[in-house]
Design a protein around this nucleic acid. Structure first.
Lengths: 339, 339
DNA sequence: CTGAAAGCGCTTACAG
DNA sequence: CTGAAAGCGCTTACAG
């Protein structure tokens, strides 16, 4: 109609003509999967570069039934924890020659709409970072045999491979750590919505271990994983009766809330940390190491987790029928100065 | 060969057969660009949903010569400034029905390799977030008439549309602001490598305006846009002779370095901010608002900039021949508590 | 090792 | 409004 100027695109037919070979041969040279005589390869490559030929990945995808596209679906990445994961994924996938079709989920665009798009683009696999996925979707994926890997979330579906920290164990470790250092009053700042399963696991581990140690009364305050909600949570805690004793410790289910909590305690209540109240976070984001915080936190072995996630993905793509299931990773407490 | 189980894919031919229409009609119904009798539409849609048909976007791309794919190339997104931009872009593009082919540049994978991939996937446009792009590449893009939009960077190429803050003007404003509040000794923390043009513009505006106001001696310390480098820079500054007078002010070319500088001054030198030394940052990232910092900074009108960037892109995609050039945006100083 | 040919799943003139 | 047919740019058996 109009603006169809990219008609000048050079195709394998053009290269073939110039190199005096068949189009199939050009294809063979570029796909690199067949044996072609060296002299022919040279002629083709010369012709190709003279013409500025670049194989059309779309056409290749259509015919080879493989797009080399991996859909990466992530929750809102303004949390540095997620952006560093995204970085890690991007690097690994790029190095493996895969392209990333990128989707961010948020409140407006649910995953279901996104999912339809993903399917239309015939991606080779789906890598989901900490976003909630319904069982219907994972079932649909297994029906069309689309490999799914979920990072930082556990999924019961048998066709999904999920990579997750052992949140319950980590939280138990935090309980031990805190109790061992003599704290007597405990609170947990978590969430109960989107990221709920993770937060719930951490809460469970924390309270259950504390109960075993004889501390049955653990406060729970609900936040939403932001700095602001951590501040609010701390206020709520400090304003409530019964949490004004000494030896108090607060465990937040991510660093952002932990830092918000610290700032509320310090700047709004004039409390000292860890003197008046201890704070422990989760994730070990870069900001927690900043001098103003020096947050003691739980560190997930992200690199190792990403390695496993990506290599599993690659195996699946190579047709190796690895099964679903969950891989849980052990975390460790990163001791800094807030407890 | 093996594992080719997705042969079960339902195509428009299957739908056509079941709906007793031609394949072309199915295509017309799904592309929504032709007038089809309502009764036919209904029959097709019924058949499609009974079969679980989903149009193949790859095949569509091949034939329509439009992939609906936008390549988004961003620098390392662990800096929250970039992740929020990425969020904004993702939302806008998704809402416009575009898919994102995502690339992260870093030191290992230069942009040139990435660029080849981008071209193979026949993306409709290229959106570059603050990454350095060579003139050869922009020229290649204009040759194949691939629209390019660059965010947060200025490019001289006439075929590229760039969106950028007016860094020089903003830095001049900071100079005025600081001088107006009585500061007498000034330093600038910038960089000279990758992001150099931006940092250089800010530096130029800052020093040139200060010179006009009678302050010819502005210290320069080089960082690399990280928190750590801000700390180092501040140490360097404080250890050097001549910057130990009162009324000192430091302008950092991003918030991360500003916060590092603050922490060094406060925690390592026992200085108070802004009492002993003022600090101003750039970007207005979320962390700067945290109670421990309350950083005075320069705020870029990101939302407006993203609106312009994306709507320009859409216009280009609709064939409207908008020209290249640079759109500069006015920033404003976000007064908080560090100056 | 190489060519001729069919086919991937769509879109889009061209005729009715 | 709809169908028959060509074609998008590749890959891949099938024969040499």
């Amino acid at each position: 109609m109009e603006a169809r100027k990219s008609e000048n695109a050079v195709t394998s037919v053009d290269v073939a003509r110039r190199a005096r070979v068949s189009q199939a041969t050009v294809s063979r040279v570029f796909s690199g999967k067949s044996v072609v005589r060296q002299g022919t390869v040279d002629r083709v490559m010369t012709a190709a570069s003279e013409l500025g030929y670049r194989p059309n990945a779309i056409a290749r995808s259509l015919t080879s039934r493989r797009t080399n596209l991996i859909a990466v679906v992530s929750v809102d990445s303004t949390h540095t924890f997620y952006s560093s994961i995204l970085n890690g994924i991007s690097g690994r996938l790029t190095r493996a020659g895969k392209q990333i079709l990128f989707f961010l989920t948020d409140f407006e665009a649910g995953f279901d709409d996104i999912f339809q798009q993903v399917l239309q683009y015939k991606v080779d696999a789906l890598l989901i970072v900490s976003a909630a996925v319904s069982v219907e979707i994972t079932e649909e994926c297994s029906r069309i045999s689309l490999p799914v890997v979920i990072f930082n979330r556990q999924i019961r579906s048998s066709h999904v491979f999920s990579i997750c920290s052992d949140n319950r164990a980590a939280a138990r470790d935090v309980a031990d750590y805190l109790a061992g250092r003599g704290y007597k009053a405990f609170a947990y700042i978590g969430s109960d919505r989107r990221l709920s399963d993770i937060s719930a696991d951490r809460r469970q581990g924390f309270t259950e271990r504390l109960a075993e140690l004889g501390f049955g009364d653990v406060r729970f305050v609900c936040g939403n994983y932001t700095y602001e909600s951590g501040r609010t949570a701390m206020r709520e805690l400090l304003d409530s009766a019964g949490f004004d004793a000494g030896s108090r410790a607060v465990f937040a289910s991510n660093d952002l809330m932990a830092m918000g909590a610290m700032d509320a305690a310090r700047h709004e209540y004039g409390l000292s940390i860890p003197g008046d109240i201890a704070v422990v976070g989760f994730d070990a984001i870069g900001e927690g190491a900043w001098k103003s915080y020096s947050l003691t936190t739980v560190e997930q072995p992200i690199d190792k987790m990403l390695d496993v996630a990506c290599s599993h993905l690659m195996k699946r793509l190579d047709g190796k029928e690895t099964d679903g299931g969950t891989r849980l990773f052990r975390c460790k407490i990163l001791e800094r100065a807030t407890a």
